[in-house]
Design a binder for these strands. Structure first.
Lengths: 314, 314
DNA sequence: CTCGGCGATACACAGCAGGTATAAAGGACG
DNA sequence: CGTCCTTTATACCTGCTGTGTATCGCCGAG
């Protein structure tokens, strides 16, 4: 039994007449008679009652037609759904990201992507860079935003693009002596109560701080440790001390805080976007396109990938 | 797009390998490749990712396959449902009947039919014989149980079979003077307060009573009129008078009542089963078969019809 | 009784599903 | 780094079957 039989039976039920149903189907009447006969033989029951007044479905025919309609609807929906999925209008995107990404690139990107692709289910997982990388390699994520490029086994199968350069910035409460000053020198920081990110989550950042302040700096040893950048800002705002974090903090200023540039300017690991080199899924492509349009400075780096994923122009 | 494409795509998704999927389908590998290619061209999206490790559905493929599974399920259900309907296992039977039929043949018939055809929806409509006949002719009923054969325009297109012979019986309360007596003579009835059926509903019965008791019998003129036989019995049981009804009342005796045969024995119109001569629906056939097995005396009359409706033995 | 309309049947043809042979691609391995 | 092997795609042929044309059989209308 093929979909053709269903289409023919439905047409016959609609027109109640072999000749007109055949005409509507664009075929001659005899083939329609034969196909209906074949269908009835296969089903094992007479589906239509042929009378002088017209052709009408039997009880078995009614039962058959109801299911046939649904079957054809499902087939049409299969094509439609596949098309939408292929165009990236539906689907799922699992994004792993470091918390500080919520300061700068993510708000705009997520807002834009959610508006352009309302039927894509976004799964957001805040996690440390190393976990993001591992999950990406294991296929548990589709995209990751990390500090610095992914390392370790399997990282060569990822594509990584820097999406922002950062440098060290200090944040204090507006009640703090440093408030109002445009900058703070590294030597001054050594004498402050510091608030820094946990070393186990982002070792690169911690190593950079150690290099800047001195390997065994007592300020660093006595620093308050926070799990993410939001906590650093929050603690600083409540007067706990001087928070140290990425310049991206400037993108989302918080009431009651003051930011000082650290002199000399100290670069931090780049914010990096990564994904599986093999992954050509349209949802990922659409997301990368949104990233490109949202972060103009990194456009060129992604253009190559977007061209590669584009469907072959016939 | 045909059902074949869905079956092939599902097999390919299951086996993740063109060669093995083709073998499972009983075809060679190249045709499968071609059919899948044709399908992808028609859908307008790549549905499977061919890798060294195997063949896996893309996001579009997953969306397609989910719908394809449901479409094929519907097709299988269409055949199954049609078969069940053709065998009369499902469907609907609209039965019109006179209330007194609930006394004798219907309880057994309905119980048996409901047990044998649990998925057939029985629509029971108690109505006067004339309304049953009209509804049957109009196609608003499938079967009717009436008093006497249907009359009027279109009745020739019905088949009618008597399913029980009745005679007049009197019913009284056990406190009534007639209680305990096996019979009552017609002359005695003329002196009783009578309870009879409404003449407008079953004119044949009323005419018979008039003939029996005398055209303008005062007993009949002063009789209590009830809409159906159950009411007659109920009124008699509560001492209102002597109820007159069909001998079928004996089949469902009621606490506190006493039945007397009326002498001389007075035949009443037969209980008649009718249905459209053209109606060969399996549900009706099954119902007629139940009637035949439940009313052995009328078996022969229905055998002919049941043979006519039987599927042609190949 | 004839005519007209409709579905079924007969038969020829062409289009396509499916078969065989083989190419192409891409790892595995010496 | 070349060879082999596995797997999918392509090429080409064949046979089935879906479709078209012609015609029959049936039945009701006039």
């Amino acid at each position: 039994m093929e979909a053709r039989h269903l289409r023919y039976a439905l047409a016959l039920a609609e027109h109640e007449h072999f000749g007109r149903a055949a005409a509507a189907l664009g075929i001659a009447q005899p083939p329609l008679s034969k196909q209906i006969a074949d269908l009835e033989r296969e089903v094992g029951a007479r589906l239509f009652e042929r009378t002088r007044q017209g052709v009408f479905p039997t009880a078995a025919g009614e039962a058959f037609l109801a299911r046939a309609r649904r079957a054809l609807d499902e087939m049409a929906a299969a094509v439609s759904d596949a098309g939408r999925a292929a165009r990236g209008e539906t689907g799922r995107l699992r994004l792993g990201f470091i918390a500080s990404a919520l300061l700068d690139p993510l708000p705009g990107v997520l807002h834009r992507f959610g508006r352009e692709r309302p039927d894509v289910r976004l799964e957001l997982h805040e996690m440390a860079s190393s976990r993001s990388s591992a999950a990406l390699i294991a296929g548990e994520l589709d995209v990751a935003i990390t500090l610095g490029p992914p390392r370790g086994a399997g990282a060569e199968r990822l594509v990584s693009v820097p999406i922002g350069h950062d440098y060290l910035v200090a944040v204090v409460s507006t009640a703090h002596p440093l408030a109002g000053r445009p900058e703070v020198r590294v030597e001054q920081l050594r004498r402050q109560r510091l608030i820094v990110a946990a070393s186990e989550d982002e070792p690169a950042v911690s190593a950079g701080l150690r290099a800047l302040l001195g390997r065994d700096s007592p300020a660093l040893a006595g620093a308050t440790v926070a799990r993410d950048v939001h906590t650093i800002v929050g603690l600083a705002a409540s007067g706990v001390g001087v928070g140290l974090g990425p310049s991206r903090m400037l993108a989302a200023p918080r009431q009651g805080t003051w930011f000082c540039e650290v002199v000399p300017r100290t670069p931090l690991p780049d914010l990096v976007l990564s994904f599986a080199a093999r992954d050509t899924s349209p949802v990922l492509t659409a997301f990368l396109d949104t990233i490109r349009r949202n972060c103009p400075t990194v456009g060129a780096a992604l253009d190559h990938r977007l061209r590669a994923a584009a469907p072959p122009s016939e």
